[in-house]
């Protein structure tokens, strides 16, 4: 075996000395291939799980939060059709995170989620605190889908549930939102596990979240860690600074 290698080495060395075109061509091709492989590996590793996903239902304030974090400005926004991506540099640290804001519309959310969920280093789930009472079912359903997703439950990215729009007078507080969501998730556990199978028999995700024989609580989701925070991406008016300090602190923690 070793002999073979030595023989080949000799042939190569000989060829190089003679300036044989075939040998040189062969070697350079080999080098190019190797470099490409290394480069791909490098890119793959570098890209992997650097993303902070901003998720939530329609009109929760995801895009505004995105532009607050990435561009530090107030921007008006409409319903998103496509995801936004941008870099967020952590203050006092030579590190950047990729912020990905996914559309919240029902038709788009799952399709987009499946494209980006592998990248999630952490997930910010934005909730509209002023309309939570009306939309609790939808919010909880989306959250349940997320938490029971197989890719997310293997990677276990930290979760932050950002109770946005605290500037509005009718906004609910963090504690209220948490308890409402927990109550709703408790019901969802039952209906989800009873839902019909998908056509191919594997479509339905019947993971049971939390502990059995006990009401659902976000603290039972270990190893998944779910935090809550109050924030206001808008601020009191267009010019004023947003109240997203807790999100920035949290990002510093997960980076």
């Amino acid at each position: 075996m070793e002999n073979h290698v030595l023989v080949w080495m000799d042939v190569v060395r000989d060829g190089l000395k003679r300036g044989d075109v075939t040998i040189i061509g062969f070697l350079s091709a080999l080098i190019v291939v190797l470099i490409t492989i290394v480069f791909f590996a490098f890119m793959r590793r570098g890209n992997k799980r650097r993303g902070i996903l901003i998720l939530g239902t329609c009109d929760a304030g995801k895009t505004l939060l995105f532009s607050r974090l990435v561009n530090k400005v107030y921007k008006r926004s409409y319903t998103s059709i496509a995801p936004n991506t941008g870099d967020y540099s952590i203050p006092n640290k030579n590190k950047t995170l990729r912020i990905i804001d996914l559309p919240g519309h029902e038709r788009l959310r799952l399709q987009n989620l499946s494209n980006y969920k592998e990248l999630a280093r952490a997930i910010i789930f934005v909730v509209d605190s002023s309309t939570i009472q009306k939309e609790v079912k939808e919010v909880a359903e989306y959250l349940y889908t997320l938490l029971s997703d197989s890719a997310i439950s293997t990677n276990c990215p930290p979760f932050l549930i950002a109770c946005n729009k605290q500037d509005l007078t009718l906004a609910k507080g963090l504690k209220v939102i948490q308890s409402q969501l927990e109550k709703e998730m408790n019901t969802l556990r039952v209906t989800r596990s009873a839902a019909l199978q998908g056509q191919d028999g594997a479509g339905n995700n019947n993971t049971f979240l939390g502990k059995r024989n006990k009401d659902f609580a976000f603290s039972d989701l270990k190893p998944l860690k779910v935090d809550f925070a109050e924030c206001s991406a808008q601020g009191n008016d267009e010019q004023s600074d947003p109240d997203i300090k807790c999100i920035e602190e949290w990002l510093l923690k997960v980076a």
């Binding site: 895009t63 995105f66 532009s67 921007k75 008006r76 926004s77 409409y78 319903t79 998103s80 059709i81 496509a82 995801p83 936004n84 804001d101 559309p103």
Partner: peptide, 11 residues
């Protein structure tokens, strides 16, 4: 004029 991500560039 807005991006497909929903951010208004100009109006």
């Amino acid at each position: 004029i807005f991006s497909k991500g929903g951010i208004v560039l100009w109006c």
